[in-house]
């Protein structure tokens, strides 16, 4: 029901905006699909989809891996094993995305060179590294809360039937925790999709960058940014739909 509701709202908004086009304050011609110029503009804008999707997917996978690696020692009973994980989370969580992006893109190659590992970081990987690190602090906390929600008796039972720590995690704890972790992780994925817009400032040709470039040449920010917002909306709705399906399949929507 709610999905149809969303789509109707969306359609209503489009119609409203289209209706405004007659009075001279709107210039939908820039993205009018019935003219060749409009078509080529639309293709230019939509051409950013692939980069946005690539950025978000790779960054999310890296963030989920990194988050788990940070979360596991964070749950140790040993204070000294726990400490680096806590420091990482507090530190990374405190840095705003944009400054971190600048630091990684402009600063990290210099740091690496001075350490004797000269590397080049292009806009694509600069954005991915930044998004992944920045998000990993949050995914780590999601893993932690999910894993800690599994009763302690499960670990104890697993250890008493001879499983090692990593076997206990792999076969007993994570399979149970993943259903509770999945919905908040999906939220993080959507968050990354939106945050990937920041990659535009270092020149990554994704959705937002394309829109910016078109605005500079066409000088119709209202129409172009409206379409940009709709592009993100479509992308997020598709992801939401996929996540609901996955949750149903894995039983995250059940109580147990």
């Amino acid at each position: 029901m709610t999905r149809f509701f969303k789509i109707w709202i969306l359609l209503g908004a489009c119609l409203f905006l289209a209706a405004c086009s007659g009075d001279g304050t709107w210039g939908w011609y820039v993205i009018d699909p019935s003219t060749p110029a409009g078509q080529s503009n639309i293709w230019f804008l939509v051409g950013g989809f692939w980069a946005t999707i690539q950025l978000s997917l790779i960054a999310t996978v890296l963030s989920m891996t990194l988050g788990l690696l940070v979360a596991l020692p964070g749950m140790s009973s040993n204070r000294w094993v726990r400490l680096p994980s806590r420091v990482y989370i507090e530190f990374v969580r405190a840095i705003p995305l944009l400054p971190m992006l600048f630091w990684v893109f402009y600063g990290l190659p210099v740091v690496m060179k001075s350490l004797g590992f000269p590397i080049t970081i292009d806009a694509f990987w600069g954005a991915i590294i930044t998004l992944a690190i920045s998000d990993s602090a949050f995914t780590a906390e999601i893993y932690r809360s999910g894993i800690q929600s599994i009763p302690k008796g499960q670990t104890e039972a697993a250890r008493t039937v001879g499983l090692t720590y990593s076997q206990t995690m792999r076969y007993v704890i994570l399979p149970q925790a993943i259903r509770r972790i999945l919905p908040p992780l999906a939220n993080q994925f959507i968050y990354i999709v939106k945050m990937s817009a920041f990659a535009s400032v270092i020149g990554m040709q994704e959705l937002t960058r394309r829109a910016n470039e078109l605005v500079v040449t066409e000088y119709r920010p209202l129409e172009i940014y409206t379409l940009l917002i709709l592009e993100y909306l479509v992308l997020v709705l598709i992801i939401s739909f996929f996540v609901r399906w996955l949750e149903r399949k894995m039983g995250s929507d059940e109580n147990r």
């Binding site: 009763p151 008796g153 499960q154 104890e156 039972a157 697993a158 039937v161 001879g162 499983l163 090692t164 076997q167 076969y171 007993v172 399979p175 149970q176 147990r256």
Partner: peptide, 22 residues
């Protein structure tokens, strides 16, 4: 509290240790 593994069938509860640890 028994502490059986709720995501596994009864038989898988019994075979997990012998298979992975032994």
């Amino acid at each position: 509290q028994f502490n059986l593994f709720p995501h596994l069938s009864v038989i898988d509860n019994l075979t997990l240790g012998p298979m992975k640890a032994r």
